[in-house]
Design a protein around this nucleic acid. Structure first.
Lengths: 112, 112
DNA sequence: TTGATACTTCACCATATGGCAAAGTGTTGC
DNA sequence: GCAACACTTTGCCATATGGTGAAGTATCAA
């Protein structure tokens, strides 16, 4: 297979491809700074399993870990998701209506 | 590992995690209907290798294949990418500026 | 200082992934 | 028909992935 060094965006999409990892990202959005064991608790997953997922998320730059005493707080780092969106945006024209319609939508949104 | 049936969005992100597959999607955007061997040609990749990538893309619903005689034309099917973007959009607030700035940008864009 | 807590690392396992060569299938052209 | 073409399938291989239990490390609390 000869795995060349995977690029940043490879690592990002690959990290996002797992439901456990996506759920971790969702939780961190609402509750930043959760610890490793708090993140693992809702899953039928031992700590080493969660560690591996967190390693994948770190390698992709999607989270940062900071040690406070013996607990580690994990927080989100959304930059790579932005790049993933930029990549996807190239295809947006294949499903969206015109830019005029987008402006109208934004304006509707503002009126509320 | 006990691989539960991967969900649609799992398959989408997973399909996007490979540079060969992303390049295939880019080519198909500009040149819809390319054949399997035309897609394989630019890579140092034999046909069976490209077949596997196309299978992954099909399973994710990102391409469709239609047989014309002995050649197969492949075309893009962007729906799943839209869903991937919707997922990512939840995090957009973590990196974007205000909606006012977005409106300004859209308007700037229109003036050109 | 000692024991519990909160990770972290290690060794191991089963399955998935991504590649190949070779053989098989269906079309086309002579 | 039959040869060439365009896939497609099969069998194989090496490595990656996602999980475990067990052992190791660092910190806190008594």
């Amino acid at each position: 297979m000869v795995k060349y060094q995977a690029s940043a965006i490879d690592r990002t999409f690959s990290a996002l491809a797992d439901p456990t990892r996506r759920y971790v990202l969702l939780r961190l959005k609402d509750e930043p700074g959760l610890s490793v064991s708090e993140l693992a608790r809702p899953f039928s997953l031992k700590l080493p399993g969660m560690m591996k997922h967190l390693d994948v998320l770190s390698d992709a730059g999607l989270i940062t870990r900071t040690k406070n005493g013996r607990t580690v707080s994990v927080s989100l780092s959304a930059g790579p998701m932005r790049e993933a969106m930029e990549w996807l945006r190239r295809y947006e024209s294949l499903w969206t209506v015109s830019i005029d319609r987008l402006v109208a939508l934004v304006e509707e949104d503002e009126e509320q």
